[in-house]
Design a protein around this nucleic acid. Structure first.
Lengths: 261, 261
DNA sequence: GCAATTCTCGTAGGGTATACGAGAATTGGC
DNA sequence: GCCAATTCTCGTATACCCTACGAGAATTGC
């Protein structure tokens, strides 16, 4: 089997878009009708639409309408919806103001991880739809690489050897991205359904006494009773508990990593 | 504003389905045409379809076709696609053979968490589509509760006080579910695209030298060079590194949790 | 045997992505 | 100045998706 090389495979096309390499017009002499849009405009519009009304609103038709062009016009700028999504993802990944090599960063490694955490949570908060797009085969653009580089260098600052630093960076990214994504998604659902998380749990809490069998779930019952006094009536449903669990887990993970340094 | 009580709100309907509470026929005297299907059959078929050909293949039309009935017939058994998804999710969550209260379980708490990890990874492996459905407002069925109860009781076994046990259980679940989901999704993509993860990275690796700026990513470069000898040419793209990072992160998280007990 | 009830499912409407191809706009070369 | 080559625009059509509606079939109680 032959692997696609730098020529013109679909992977090459996507990478060229991600890195904004002008393959077409700028390279060859300008000829033919002038484009009315720019790639960045298309991506920005799609992101704005997704931010405001959810990822489903960022359909090709809606994006085109928002730009005042026919739906099919978009396909001049982007080969498919999938590539557009890749571009959207890398664009928002890059929004995080993570310092590059040589730039100022927090003094100690924990604070550096804290910055990654804060920036990532803010990013998900601005773009909740990000949580619902798969990132296992991420768009390898500037945004993704910048974040990887930052976290990795932070683990070096802690003094981990290269291989271990790589493992630690992956573990932290897994935890932070997942938790931040969940948090943002929760907020989005609250906004879009108009029902708070607490109200949602409450709606079901009433019915729990119907199905909930204390003998089958003794520990949950114990936790429930223990926390009944402090206002968090429905356990992990509340915002506070979720946020607290996030901090707790991240701190413990960092504790564990530090212990192996 | 009035909260929906046990009467017949949409939440009540969903809960009744999740817990297989026979609201209709069994309660009232049997009358009218007999159903040709059972709810479980519908859910099983949908799960099987999603397992084999991805979540997109579990459309109402496809499920109906697989069952040999008209599409609209499904709506007698399930109010909407969304509820069907909830049922699918809780069904597979319950597949994990996590011991309930009083049943045999591994001796020490780390092994207990290990069981949760193994069972969860196996579950995602069987049902990769699970990674792509949102679980912030999870179906509150037997499957979800059983897993919560198990993890929580494990944290009690470690000796954590109730509130802290709750935080720890949430943190572990966040990490394990996210990592296991990512792993399974990766496998799914390999199967469905016929392209291994390594091949995918390789396809892009060729192009990296085109866009990759060593000065902007010095740490990545260092890790790359360090690992260049051991066969994992493209860093975290490989299966082995991912699995190793998962174990490393979970162990460090548990270390940290144990230290606060 | 008929009425009440329940399940079945065809049709239709509104959504999605995108392949195709005709037409409009622009410019290089003559 | 004109034409051909090139590039962008976008209407139409196809093939999916979910699901509201309503007509008809099946079953049972009375």
């Amino acid at each position: 089997m032959t692997v696609q090389h730098s020529g013109g495979g679909p992977a090459a096309r996507t990478l060229a878009l991600l890195w904004r390499k002008q393959t077409q017009r700028a390279a060859t002499k300008a000829r033919g009708r002038k484009p009315t849009l720019q790639l960045d405009t298309v991506v920005d519009t799609a992101v704005a639409l997704a931010d405001e009304r959810g990822i489903a609103a960022a359909s090709m038709g809606n994006v085109a309408k928002a730009l005042g062009v026919g739906t099919m016009t978009l396909y001049t700028y982007v080969p498919s919806k999938e590539e557009l999504l890749d571009l959207m993802v890398d664009q928002v990944l890059l929004e995080r103001g993570l310092p590059g090599p040589g730039e100022d960063r927090p003094a100690n490694w924990r604070a550096q991880v804290g910055l990654y955490s804060d920036e990532t949570r803010a990013m998900y908060s601005r773009h909740p739809w990000l949580a619902r797009v798969s990132t296992i085969r991420p768009p390898i653009g500037p945004g993704m690489l910048a974040a990887r580089e930052y976290l990795l260098s932070t683990m070096f600052a802690l003094g981990l050897p290269p291989a271990r630093a790589n493992l630690a960076a992956l573990a932290i990214a897994t935890y932070v991205d997942s938790a931040a994504g969940g948090e943002a998604e929760s907020d989005l659902i609250e906004r879009s359904t108009g029902q708070t998380h607490d109200a949602w749990w409450h709606e079901r809490g009433d019915l729990w006494e119907h199905y909930f069998d204390v003998d089958r779930y003794p520990t949950m019952t114990a936790v429930w009773n223990d926390g009944a006094g402090d206002g968090s009536a429905y356990g992990d449903g509340t915002r506070e508990v979720t946020a607290e669990a996030y901090r707790y887990g991240l701190d413990r993970l960092l504790d564990g990593i530090a212990a192996t340094a």
